[in-house]
Amino acid sequence: MSERLTILLTHQAEPLVEAMVAWWQRHVPGPDILVAYGGDRERFESLNVPNRVFVDDSRLRTRDHQRERQSFGGVFMAMNEWLRDRPAYRLILLSEFDCLPMCHDLFGRLEARLATEEADVLGCRLERVDGTNHPHFLYHSSAPDFASFIDRISIRRDRSVVLAMLGCVSFWNREAFTAVADAQESSPLYLEIALPTLAHHLGFRVRGLTDQDRWVQPTGDLALQLDEVRAAGAWMAHPVKGFWEKQAQRAPAG
């Protein structure tokens, strides 16, 4: 068993998920791959991949993600349950299906950066947002239970700090991942606030992959620019739309 685990979060149809896993195995060799499936239960049951977990959480299946405060709480809880019997995993890459690796040694690069930064969590577009005009912060600060929730879980002296980062890709050491998974159970937070803020207040060091921010974007589609993005030095690209559909057409799974 590897020490390295890549968790791929998806809700797509079976052939696309199977194509995605096969592609990751071929292009980013080394880490084990676990599919966290947020789609239909029936589709999940017929998935033909080595490792899979069904995420049964209504807060993952939101329509207006920001206003409904979409959560990865169910994802982290399901992963934590799966990890419980697998103590060997030390490092975890969590990636949404539309975030595409741009290099074969993505995991090694992230691992080296984690060590260089002496960090526990790495994320893209990480920023401190408390006291600012950040819309997600302002939306959360209107909720009566927001400050009290932070206050309850925090081991930091300054409980006012609120961080935000994109949820599409993040890199974790096992301890931080597990602790955040436990804290997420009662979290009323939107995932882009929850992941870095919980990790920070639980005492972990969260650092931004600032040199990668330009290629990991909240919206848009980088599908037509992948060669340029790769040549420019990207480790990963987000969002990339329609990629797994093309892969599934080229090489049907199985």
Binding site: R128, G203, V206, G208
Partner: peptide, 17 residues
């Protein structure tokens, strides 16, 4: 004004709950 880039130390070992 803006916040500087988040660069907070790891505090878990020194200050576990």
């Amino acid at each position: 004004s803006t916040h500087p880039e988040p660069d907070f130390p790891h505090e878990r070992k020194a200050n576990d709950p």
